[in-house]
């Protein structure tokens, strides 16, 4: 079974408080924020590794981004991925989700010979959840989003898709694209052997020419959306701390909620 896992490097959310905009100067404080693999993508890698352990084959990790994304790909190799490909080209820069999914799809087409594509359900920096479904459409293969469990038998996949208030058990033939939630598994830590392997690993780097992409459909040029303004959200005003003994506070709260017609 050949599996391709798409991963994105994102700023570490645990540190994202540091990204707080300084209210006085209205600037972003971004120094010292570590870059990590998008947490859901770690679940996707883990699932890929487990499936490989069961059925054999190869796990390739694929990412588009600046040269420093090599670090994320090496981390994935340390976890156990076999190969890594980085899509890195000035022409890819500034891509929106449409251009990103087109570019990833071109690279996946070039790799060919895959049974399963695994994506995180969404990336925590942009939270769009749009790239997975986009790639499936560009490749013309079926997709199942928000999946918490998969089983594969005879080139047929059974997946549990998370809905708002229930789950859906679906079945389809491979190849297919699946986006995964964090319920799927607990990502493993890199092994010592893995880390050694990652250190020595050669990451394949592909540019525009290597993936036969239409230059008008990648990067900023291929993007349909434009960011025209960035601003600080209005901070919620600090409210009122109720005073007194617990039962006085409880009483006061009930009164306030009734007065303001919340209840």
């Amino acid at each position: 079974m050949n599996i391709i896992v798409c991963i994105k490097q994102v700023p570490d959310t645990a540190a994202i408080q540091l990204v707080r905009i300084n209210p006085q100067t209205n600037t972003l404080v971004r120094e010292g924020i570590p870059a990590i693999i998008n947490p859901f993508d770690e679940n996707a890698i883990e699932e890929g590794l487990r499936l490989r352990e069961k059925y054999g084959g190869e796990v390739t990790v694929l990412s588009m981004g600046p040269p420093q994304v090599e670090k994320a790909l090496k981390d994935a190799i340390a976890m156990g991925a076999d190969k890594a490909v980085l899509l890195c080209d000035r022409a890819f820069a500034g891509a929106d989700t449409l251009a990103t999914s087109y570019t990833l799809a071109c690279a996946i087409k070039k790799m060919g010979n895959y049974d399963l594509l695994l994506f995180g359900k969404q990336a925590i920096d942009g939270d769009t959840a749009q790239v997975g479904p986009g790639v499936a459409e560009h490749l013309g293969i079926p997709q199942v989003t928000f999946v918490r469990k998969i089983e594969i038998e005879n080139q047929t996949i059974r997946a549990e898709r998370t809905l708002e208030d229930s789950f859906e058990l679906v079945e389809a033939k491979l190849p297919i694209l699946v986006t995964v939630t964090k319920e799927m598994n607990t990502p493993r830590y890199p092994s010592l052997k893995g880390m050694m392997k990652a250190k020595a690993a050669q990451i394949t780097v592909w540019g525009l020419q290597d993936i036969d992409a239409d230059p008008n459909r990648v990067g900023l040029t291929g993007s349909t959306t434009q960011v025209i303004k960035i601003f600080t959200p209005e901070m919620r005003k600090k409210g009122e701390i109720l005073r007194g003994e617990p039962d006085q506070m409880a009483e006061a709260l009930v009164g306030k909620l009734r007065d303001s017609k919340v209840l």
């Binding site: 994202i16 972003l28 920096d125």
Partner: peptide
């Protein structure tokens, strides 16, 4: 919102 709600972005799609 973007970056975990730390900033807001206004986005347009003028040509499509």
């Amino acid at each position: 919102p973007a970056f975990g709600g730390n900033i807001m972005a206004t986005i347009i799609s003028p040509n499509h």
